[in-house]
Nucleic acid binder design. Sequence first.
DNA 1: GGTTGACTTATTGTATACAAAAGATTAAAT
DNA 2: ATTTAATCTTTTGTATACAATAAGTCAACC
Lengths: 223, 223
Amino acid sequence: MYAYEFIKDAIIQGKYEPGMRLAEETLAKELNLSRTPVREAIKQLEAEGLLVPLKRGVSVRHFTKDDIRQIYDLRTLLEGYGASQAAINRTDDDLKRMETANQLYEKAITQYIESDMDSIKEIVDVNQEFHNSIVAASKNAHIFFHISKVVVVPVVFRSFYWYNHFQLQQSLEVHKIILQAIKNKEPERARIAMHEHIFQGRDHVLRHLEEIKNSHLLKEEDS
Amino acid sequence: MYAYEFIKDAIIQGKYEPGMRLAEETLAKELNLSRTPVREAIKQLEAEGLLVPLKRGVSVRHFTKDDIRQIYDLRTLLEGYGASQAAINRTDDDLKRMETANQLYEKAITQYIESDMDSIKEIVDVNQEFHNSIVAASKNAHIFFHISKVVVVPVVFRSFYWYNHFQLQQSLEVHKIILQAIKNKEPERARIAMHEHIFQGRDHVLRHLEEIKNSHLLKEEDS
DNA sequence: GGTTGACTTATTGTATACAAAAGATTAAAT
DNA sequence: ATTTAATCTTTTGTATACAATAAGTCAACC
């Protein structure tokens, strides 16, 4: 599915801005494809909630502050549950994978602080990897489906790009607490730590949006 | 989207059995449509997880017992959260809607017990309505998306059809407790009652599957 | 000035055709 | 008899064409 990847990427990269209307023919031309495969890609992205149907055609989804809060609340719920289950069900191999991911995370942050700006991309990827390794250890294969839908928000907002050194360090520390709780098989502690971690992420996004205010990403009015 | 509805319905009604492979042309003929709209419907159902991609074409998803447990666990988490938030955020209008739905639920059960077998369909619908009204009162619009994905399981298994009179009465009682908690604005009590309610549903499904064993709906092996 | 209605244009929905790829089948060779 | 290669068949991926419908335009009318 080339068309699917392309459009999804364009949305995440901000090339297609939230609220922007997308016509099939236009997309088809941009991709050097006919409308047929483009339409299928659109249908999928609609089912995933990244595109919203209009009377005619679709537009890129945008988020109000309420949306962001609500989606983060769900993410907290889901990943918190994932962490608690991971603390119960993790194998030693699972633990090893989490630790490895978090070591890479630490390394990427160190590199970034030593002013290698390019390593932000690495930080994002390795952070994702860490979170995934926890969910994988929970042994509930279906969480992935839901989490992937709920993680698009920080991704489309590219929230990592506005973390400062201190905030990155701080998130690393929380990662370590989560890891410790899972290692010790303390589900409640793991859940609470994960809750806190994701709420921090939510507040980070909301605070930033408050600052830049006129972000094209955010819909003007919260109903 | 006629094709989408048709195929989804056929899966839920059990006309297309889990594991069954579906070819585009076959579906198109059955629907008196060309392959184009059929393909789009397939792509959507794939994104929703009701169809799984094969090397060639797709097949109807089937569930292992582990799948059922895991999906019910998620549903418990989500609806439990919904109930707790409803207890916090519900308006008087929300409450009225829940109460109305549950009165209709009670009525449908009474009718059923008085041996009007057709009212099972009504029970299913009104139960759904009751659950929806709670989620709506939670004021998190995004839960709907996730819950709809997680509710397909009891639906494809048509689990309501094997409730006996006593079990129906019992579920009505739990509904009343949930309602009371939401009315009193007791989030924790609402959450716990909802947890219990859905776990009962899960156990009901699993117990029944254990009994019939050779259900074509269930994949033989739990890995 | 603003509304209504006929007409034009743009955009989507569906069908069909053909190209590409995967699977099945047959025949030859060891 | 089993493996391998070549060929045929089925099924999917993409392009194009046309039909159906929504949106936009303009002019006549109140």
